[in-house]
């Protein structure tokens, strides 16, 4: 792997994303109780665990859709959400426009797609490159068309989200994320809102992306996908990381009781 980022010169080299001691409280409830992990460039990390374990909150904290209560996130060596300023260093949150720019480096695919209903598929994908990256209208459209072709939706470019199936909508959402040329993509239960027969078309696209070397963090209940596509699996429960490792270890020889119970439960559904 080649990288010219300062991160490469650090001890934990090559890690594209590094998360240390991530905590999040909502009022009195502590949802994340200190989460740390690394993702290497090109890796696919799958987060599994019972609902309410905090998986989605991890994703939402990474790109600051939720502001973490404590902890450090670094993307390619750059602190996310703020920076240390002065001597002694003091944490200062980023101003809105810089935070927005940083967010655009994380693609995000939502459970409920969240496509813009007033725009066509092409416009949904082109609006980011056009309005955020400042590409010309023609260049933004060309890029959008290219990404839609990549998720096999070239012939549906001019349809609005309401004219597309759930699986097609989610693929548009993936193309929308890809068009920003993010460093990594976060998937928040991308197939949970889909009819069962449409799940595979989204998982196929995600599998292709993983093979092409896209860095991804995926929260999912699709254990088959986790087994096939993950380089690393993290099992979370109750705001903690219980166990992590390559899928063959976590799925076939889990070390922790909690993991075993969870897996028996979901695999025998």
């Amino acid at each position: 792997m080649t990288t010219d980022t300062p991160f490469a010169r650090r001890p934990h080299e090559k890690s594209l994303l590094s998360v240390r001691g991530l905590r999040k409280t909502f009022g009195e409830r502590e949802i994340l109780k200190g989460i740390s992990f690394d993702v290497m460039a090109g890796q696919t990390l799958v987060l599994i665990g019972p609902s309410g374990s905090g998986k989605t909150t991890v994703l939402r904290c990474l790109n600051y859709l939720e502001t973490p209560t404590a902890g450090a996130i670094e993307l390619a060596g750059e602190p996310v959400g703020g920076d240390y300023v002065g001597e002694p260093p003091r944490w200062v949150p980023l101003p809105e426009h810089r935070l927005a720019l940083q967010r655009s480096k994380f693609g995000f695919v939502f459970q409920r797609f969240n496509l813009f209903p007033h725009l066509t598929a092409l416009q949904n994908v082109a609006i980011g490159p056009r309005k955020v990256l400042g590409l010309s209208a023609a260049a933004a459209q060309a890029r959008a068309a290219q990404q839609l072709a990549r998720v096999s939706l070239a012939e549906h470019m001019d349809k609005r989200p309401s004219q597309l199936s759930g699986g097609q909508q989610q693929r548009v959402a993936i193309a929308r994320a890809l068009a920003m040329e993010p460093r990594l993509i976060l998937f928040d239960e991308p197939t949970s809102a889909l009819d069962p027969e449409l799940v595979h078309e989204v998982l196929d696209v995600m599998g292709d992306l993983a093979r092409e070397g896209m860095t991804m963090i995926v929260v999912t209940h699709e254990m088959g996908f986790a087994r096939r596509a993950a380089d690393k699996v993290i099992f979370m429960a109750d705001g903690h990381i219980v166990e992590e490792g390559p899928p063959e270890d976590v799925f076939t020889a889990p070390r922790e009781d909690k993991t075993r119970r969870f897996l028996t439960h979901v695999l025998n559904r």
């Binding site: 927005a100 967010r103 994380f106 693609g107 939502f110 409920r112 959402a173």
Partner: peptide, 25 residues
Amino acid sequence: KGQTEAAKSIGMTQGKILFYILLPQ
């Protein structure tokens, strides 16, 4: 709320979100 979040996720600032995403809808 998902509209604002999706717009944020592609790097839009509050003003752009209002103007291009929320107002037209």
